[in-house]
Design a protein around this nucleic acid. Structure first.
Lengths: 337, 337
DNA sequence: CCTGCACGTCGAAGCGCTTCGATTACTTCC
DNA sequence: GGAAGTAATCGAAGCGCTTCGACGTGCAGG
């Protein structure tokens, strides 16, 4: 194992000089710098992470706490995770992956031991047990999601309320008067993550203003569940001509069932989804949708976290503006509907 | 920040005693032990990870190198990642998430700096550029997947060849004589990950023995691609009555298109999938399938890696035995087919 | 009674790095 | 021409932990 001292000796300088070449925290002459850099390369030197962390009390590691459950938004979570990792690397940070398994204790452990310099929390619940711990730890943190109480944290999320509102607007503009919202599985609502509620609330508010009638049904993302829900929905409200779906797993079942039911999309029924772009593009119908911008969220989260670590930036709440893209699944309400 | 020394002082013992209480590497009297443990609790002490790593040259971190691309097997990857993390924690290890982005350099960095004690590589290609680096680093490593040259590594993977074989057998037993295999997207084959090839090869070998005629078509997991492929397939081989699908994204498009085509599953057409259990259970039809056992793979990988770290266990190749579960998507070949 | 051995504890060295003065050698400016 | 500064480098302290050897103590065996 090659150490700083080895490099110093090889280059004929002191250890501190090598360190300063590496960190750039003091001016070093071009000649010395080159000599040191050559030695580093020749010896194949890699600074020891542990020693570095100990001496500088900075690990250059960000902890990313992921949801344990894989029942929801898997692609989004994965995309966020990968984007966080990629982005963090650009700032010289690595990412430690924590699962929900360990619960709030994980936060204490990772932060208390100085393993991570900062934390990103995914799948944040309204009254998340991890938040008080994190707050008192004083470590920089960014939440992906929106808890009830945001003080002390930077939060990044899609403005789901606005997303819901956009969906209502779009369908209203197309002349629809009665719509159904297929929501996430009931478990998601029970978990109090907030985003599902915010969507439906934003949608309802706008719908009221526009004179749109709304029926909301949480629904598991299986064919069976969807078939059940759909039957009920049409029995209860035969006049429904529009669907808003916020449950990526439910999208294909819905489309497939409508097809079996001889209801044409978009001629008879319009469908708008709140889902990752990929889902909207890849299904049997190119969906009119509001995208969930996973990468952008990850980018914001990491950038802000780094800013907090390095020059302790202020807390902020980033509510990303949703955009509705019209594709092939929505159209004018059928005449006489 | 509370240190070992603080705890020692508070408990009225020396620092080394505290250390030994923590590690259990020397016998400590019950009395002292309790006293120390109380002090630890009272002071809220957390050992500093950096100092520990420096002193012991063990970081208790495993690096998990994930595929960058999210074009394939996302749920499987995610499930593996989470299972790896969960499992590692049970052994007192944390998991550092590396993406493919950085390429082989990531291996060098993480291993050279002592950031990680060991590495798990996912999405291993036949002649993966990371392998030589890893081999010369001498760090314990486990590969998920099967490269051309396995010496020096422990590998964990599903026995895809056997999986293919099982699919052929099942369809042959049901009386099918001509089948089609819907494979992964062409890009997956070009990438030379091997598993897709192994499946088709195992399937072909068994099919030959059983007098089964096979048509193999790699296919993107979109409706459009699937529609195109399906058209071609039935034109080319109208007698086909069975499908084997190894592309989780293609499963629903296939079922949906068959339905539109008025071909009933399983009466007219049998479908067998090689996919995660969840996909097999959640679609419009409960699929006869060979499961991809993500968790089991993760468990094997972590357990063996820990064994290598702690008592440097031998390299092994774990080829998990696939199991075909019969569900609603396969049945006897139609008479006169 | 002394030797030998296990047990329980301590002290000190050292892991590889960062960082804070201190030092030296030049400039620059009045 | 000397004071004052600046640039480039070095030495040493110390980050918080692990670990090795040493040092009592108490007890069994000869």
């Amino acid at each position: 194992m090659v150490t700083l001292a080895d490099v110093a000796q090889h280059a004929g300088v002191s250890a501190s000089t090598v360190s300063y070449v590496l960190s750039g925290k003091r001016t070093i002459s071009a000649v010395t710098k080159q000599r040191v850099e050559r030695s580093i390369k020749e010896l194949g030197y890699h600074p020891n992470a542990g020693a570095r962390a100990l001496a500088s009390s900075r690990s250059n590691i960000i902890a990313l706490m992921m949801p344990l459950r894989t029942d929801m938004y898997v692609p989004v979570m994965m995309e966020i995770a990968i984007a966080v990792a990629t982005n963090a690397r650009e700032h010289g940070f690595d990412v430690l992956m924590l699962t929900g398994e360990e619960g709030p204790a994980a936060v204490r452990r990772v932060v208390g031991s100085g393993l991570a310099d900062a934390v990103i929390l995914m799948d944040v619940e309204l009254n998340d047990a991890r938040l008080p711990l994190l707050r008192e730890s004083g470590r920089p943190a960014v939440l992906i999601g929106l808890p009830a109480q945001t003080t002390g944290f930077t939060c990044v999320d899609l403005d789901f309320s606005e997303a819901g509102s956009l969906c209502a607007e779009h369908l209203a503009e197309l002349g629809h008067r009665e719509i159904a919202v297929i929501g996430e599985a009931p478990a998601v609502y029970e978990r109090k993550t907030g985003f599902a509620e915010r969507t439906i609330q934003g949608l309802r508010t706008r719908a009221r203003q526009l004179g749109l009638r709304v029926l909301h049904r949480p629904c598991e993302g299986t064919y069976a569940a969807m078939a059940g829900a759909l039957g009920q929905i049409f029995t209860e409200r035969p006049g429904i001509t529009g669907f808003v779906v916020q449950n990526e797993q439910a999208v294909e079942p819905l489309l497939s069932l409508l097809r079996q039911d001889r209801r044409a999309v978009p001629e008879d029924i319009s469908v708008v989804a709140v889902c990752p772009e990929q889902v909207a593009l890849q299904g049997s119908v190119r969906l009119t949708s509001v995208a969930i911008p996973a990468r952008e969220m990850a980018r914001h989260a990491v950038d802000h976290l780094i800013a907090k670590i390095e020059r302790d930036a202020d807390d902020e709440v980033f509510l990303l503006r949703p955009e509705l893209v019209v594709r092939a699944s929505s159209g004018p309400a059928p005449v006489g509907g």
